[in-house]
């Protein structure tokens, strides 16, 4: 019994690290640009399909597909920023939502058009398989995905903290006007932050594909999930994001194992609503 519970907790925690990576992208976009992006989950969905595409038609293993999908998503992010997002920066919040929900509809319909509505999965990846560890079973793909996610999250944190570009992103997030006076190119910084947030979903999508299938309606789940994690952690704390991702992942895994697989979203949203009521700034929020 105890072993089973611990197994679920461990599986959920590994999954939660990938969730944190997705939420980090959203946190960058929301924290820096102050744009309410409803389409973030659909970027994940698109990344998963691109991974499928790259591994099927280019015969690349899922481990290497991020080398293609990350630049693709980064480029797409830049394109979407300059063509759509930039025009909504000074608009009211509802207009931003209308635009990003439109984008979400677009991405989903596009995926249905290109890859059809049925679920797709990778046939094989070199990191699939599992090994026993004492009484537990460790899924190799999940372990590697979680480790890579943590590495990526820490790398982004270091980048934001120590690099010149990272510092200008943080400056723009704190006070865009003041940063602009200090010689930070705001438009360029925003474009970079948005593209980086999108590119992070490419890595997450690639990792998810190694142990999951994808269908066009998945975007909504990842979108709401990453908003939940963001609400849980609050803005501006990277370690908070990881912890929140793990909390959500574990809650999901325990629900799936001990109650009802279909009720997992229920638990996540209950956590979300309770946090909104009791701690509107999140558990680890800076602002």
């Amino acid at each position: 019994m105890i072993v089973n519970i611990l197994q679920s907790v461990a599986d959920g925690a590994l999954m939660g690290c990938v969730y944190a990576l997705i939420a980090l992208g959203l946190s960058l976009i929301f924290g820096v640009l102050n744009i309410v992006n409803f389409a973030h989950g659909d970027f994940v969905m698109l990344s998963m399909y691109l991974t499928f595409w790259a591994s099927t038609y280019l015969s690349l293993d899922a481990v290497f597909t991020p080398l293609i999908t990350i630049p693709l998503l980064f480029g797409l992010g830049v394109l979407i920023y300059y063509s759509i997002i930039q025009k909504t920066l000074r608009e009211r919040f509802v207009v931003q939502v209308a635009v990003t929900v439109g984008l979400m509809t677009f991405l989903r319909a596009f995926a249905q058009l290109v890859w059809e509505a049925r679920p797709r999965a990778l046939k094989f990846s070199i990191i699939q398989g599992n090994f026993p560890l004492g009484p537990f079973t460790v899924l190799l793909s999940r372990l590697i995905s979680a480790s890579l996610s943590i590495v990526a999250v820490v790398a982004v944190a270091m980048f934001l903290k120590y690099s010149w570009l990272g510092r200008s992103i943080r400056a723009a997030s704190d006070d865009a006007d003041a940063a602009s006076l200090m010689g930070v190119n705001i438009r360029w910084t925003y474009a970079f932050a948005f593209a980086m947030g999108s590119a992070l979903t490419a890595l997450a999508g690639g990792l998810l594909m190694t142990f999951q299938q994808v269908d066009p309606t998945m975007g909504l789940r990842f979108g709401l999930l990453s908003w939940c994690i963001l609400a849980l952690s609050g803005l501006g704390s990277i370690s908070g994001l990881l912890i929140s991702g793990v909390i959500v992942g574990v809650a999901e895994a325990l629900t799936v194992a001990y109650w009802e697989p279909r009720a997992r979203s229920l638990i996540v949203y209950l956590i979300f609503v309770v946090i909104l009521w009791l701690r509107p700034r999140g558990l680890f929020g800076r602002k």
């Binding site: 984008l103 596009f110 058009l113």
Partner: peptide, 13 residues
């Protein structure tokens, strides 16, 4: 099948 939704989404945006 989904082309109409693509167009619809573009119009909305």
């Amino acid at each position: 099948q989904s082309l109409y939704l693509v167009i619809y989404a573009v119009v909305l945006i």
